[in-house]
């Protein structure tokens, strides 16, 4: 019995990380209706950027964020204003196919530069330390820290959306882009900032992946799918829905893995499809139509 509880608890911790993947995807979809197929590859890119930063400066992975976060922020802004803004319009094809192309380019560039070898960001003794919650349930310190930071970030995002000037501009643009322009909101700039914020979350997620598990250039697509599933399960109503989506996915995967190691990801996908059939708008949908 206690092993099952343990699986669920571990799944919750993993779910926090998935929610981080998902939050970045949810923001850009919310603000500009863009589904970024390169999202997962950008997470892996961020992990590699962190790796290079750590190797050249010798800093701790957590400290590397000082460099990686601003880099990814800038990268996101330029990517949006330089390329993706030109794909947005009534036609669904250009944004999908362009981000799809970018995904393949990033993947293969990483493969060419860093080879297909698995990498890891070394965080020191913290990697192996853990706290015992009750007998049979041991929480790794690192997964716990990642989870707490993920929840804190989701909380901060939710506050940011509801209380700040930028958050209002994001919501107004999401509601009605053309009227938002009449408020003096520069749409191109707002889209750039949305992608920049999304990639900051991606950067944090990438570094967390790097210290929690191994990563390699081919990891992106599955992370995109996890992010996507968490967003849909959560239902786009709020960042809390996204967190719930990530946790449900993480728990489903861990229960699957408990039944049979081959069932880990399969169980997650099946949970997603079942929820999609039963609740097409997710568990916590937006209250208004759009």
């Amino acid at each position: 019995m206690i092993e099952w509880v343990n699986s669920i608890v571990q799944g919750v911790l993993t779910g926090g990380l998935y929610a981080l993947f998902a939050a970045g995807l949810a923001i850009i979809f919310g603000v500009m209706r863009l589904v970024n197929i390169a999202h997962g590859d950008l997470i892996v890119l961020a992990a590699f950027v962190a790796m290079v930063t750590i190797e050249t400066t010798g800093v701790d992975p957590f400290v590397s964020m000082v460099a990686v976060l601003p880099f990814m922020f800038f990268f996101g802004y330029v990517l949006q204003r330089g390329i993706l803004n030109y794909t947005l319009g009534d036609d669904l094809l250009p944004p999908l196919l362009v981000t799809f192309g970018i995904s393949i380019v990033i993947q293969n560039l990483l493969l060419e530069i860093f080879s297909a070898d698995s990498q890891r960001l070394k965080a020191g003794p913290i990697e192996v330390s853990s706290v015992e919650l009750v007998e049979g349930i041991e929480l790794g310190t690192l997964p716990l820290i990642v989870f707490v930071i993920a929840v804190a970030l989701i909380f901060a995002l939710q506050i940011g959306f509801s209380r700040t000037r930028l958050g209002r501009a994001f919501r107004a643009t999401s509601d009605d882009p053309s009227t938002a322009r009449l408020m003096g909101i520069n749409q191109k700039h707002i889209f750039g900032l949305a992608m920049a914020v999304s990639l900051v979350l991606v950067a944090i997620a990438g570094i967390f992946i790097g210290i929690r598990t191994n990563f390699d250039p081919a990891l992106g697509p599955t992370r995109l799918l996890f992010a996507f599933e968490a967003v849909i399960i959560g239902g786009l109503g709020s960042m809390w829905g996204t967190l719930a989506g990530g946790v449900i996915l993480g728990v489903a995967q861990n229960i699957g893995a408990k039944i049979d190691p081959g069932w880990q990801f399969l169980a997650g996908h099946i949970a997603f499809l079942v929820i999609l059939v039963l609740r097409p708008n997710g568990l916590f949908p937006r209250t208004r139509d759009d």
Partner: peptide, 19 residues
């Protein structure tokens, strides 16, 4: 009118002063 549905009345007013 085109008010922003996910903004409160006051937020709708505040965003008018965005520039």
């Amino acid at each position: 009118r085109r008010l922003f549905p996910s903004l409160s009345v006051e937020e709708n007013l505040v965003i008018g002063g965005y520039s």
